[in-house]
């Protein structure tokens, strides 16, 4: 069995089905990106894997153990950072480190926390509160906190969506570097196929909701280390990108067609406005299409 395994997982919120029959297997050390439209249910999916939500049906296992509750074996980077605003950068990460390694000496904890702060280049901001940091810096704290827990698997929920393009690219490089250093299993949620292609081994699209489900898995055949600029010229890149985007757009148009009603044209012919009115002010009775057997049009030349 794969390392992380979801079988026919479904989830509804008060009657509205969000996720339907989700099947997912992720191998140990794999980097998988899940791409989907906003509102499709990506956060719901990651919360299920994290154990913060319970599925209505289906089975979820991590390392052959059923997922029932959240735990520090799954490091999460939440979409909205979820840093505690009353703690400094150092204290936020320390809280996580203490939770995972309660028996470490104070010195060892301190050293560990500082190592991860340095890893995301935040040493100068060590004693600042999240409110004093930019969005990109907060996101890095959030990543450092998840990594410092040394989890078996990293769950990243759109970690970079709220950032400007430049910061985003920098952090993508950082995530790529960190991953290549210790090859953790990663599930990355994103709304940007390019980000997925640049970072992941496989990309799995989530169809548009309601009742979203995972599409086929697209393997990224581009060798690592990947170069952001060169990647654009890779023949496989363009095809992959086109296929993924096409799949996602199709999943949406199918949905749209499924919900619209069958249209019926009115059973009436256009009137000829040149025909004079009758005494009552009405024109002739409307012509029903189904009654028309023979149409002739006179053309004045």
């Amino acid at each position: 069995m794969a390392y992380l395994e979801l079988k026919n997982v479904s989830k509804s919120f008060g009657g509205a089905q969000v996720l339907k029959d989700i099947n997912l297997s992720v191998e140990k050390g794999e980097f998988v990106a899940i791409v989907g439209f906003s509102g499709a249910g990506k956060t719901t999916l990651i919360s299920l894997i994290a154990g913060l939500l319970q599925p209505d049906s289906g089975a979820m296992t991590l390392n052959d153990l059923e997922i029932t509750a959240p735990g520090p074996d799954r490091g999460i980077v939440f979409q909205n950072y979820s840093l505690l605003p009353w703690l400094t950068v150092y204290e936020n990460i320390l809280l996580a480190v203490e939770a995972v390694n309660p028996n470490w000496s104070a010195d060892k904890k301190k050293e560990h926390v500082e190592k991860y702060i340095a890893m995301v280049n935040l040493t100068p901001a060590r004693d600042k509160k999240p409110g004093e940091l930019s969005g990109g810096m907060r996101q890095r704290v959030s990543v450092a906190r998840a990594l410092a827990m040394n989890p078996q698997i990293l769950l990243l929920d759109e970690p970079l969506s709220a950032l400007d393009a430049l910061t985003r690219a920098t952090l993508q490089d950082e995530i790529s570097r960190i991953w290549s250093e210790d090859r953790k299993t990663v599930v990355l949620i994103t709304n940007d196929p390019d980000e997925g292609i640049y970072l992941a081994d496989r990309i799995i699209p989530l169809t548009a909701g309601p009742g979203a489900t995972l599409g086929p898995s697209f393997t990224v055949e581009i060798p690592r280390p990947r170069d952001r600029k060169a990647i654009n010229h890779y023949p496989a890149f363009k095809k992959l990108r086109r296929d993924i985007v096409e799949f996602m757009l199709n999943s949406r148009t199918h949905r749209a067609a499924a919900v619209t009603r069958k249209l019926t044209l009115p059973d009436i012919e256009p009137e000829d406005l040149n025909i004079p009115r009758t005494m009552t002010g009405w024109r002739t009775t409307p012509i029903r299409k189904r009654e028309v057997e023979n149409v002739s049009v006179e053309v004045n030349s």
Binding site: P70, P72, S82, W86, L95, A96, A99, V100
Partner: peptide
């Protein structure tokens, strides 16, 4: 979000109280 942090870190009851609930309510 703050409660989720406490859940993911599996903070003990007292730690949740003093590190999350009380500061958030102050």
């Amino acid at each position: 979000d703050y409660l989720n942090v406490a859940k993911v870190l599996k903070l003990s009851r007292t730690k949740t109280l003093f590190k999350v609930l009380i500061p958030a309510t102050l």
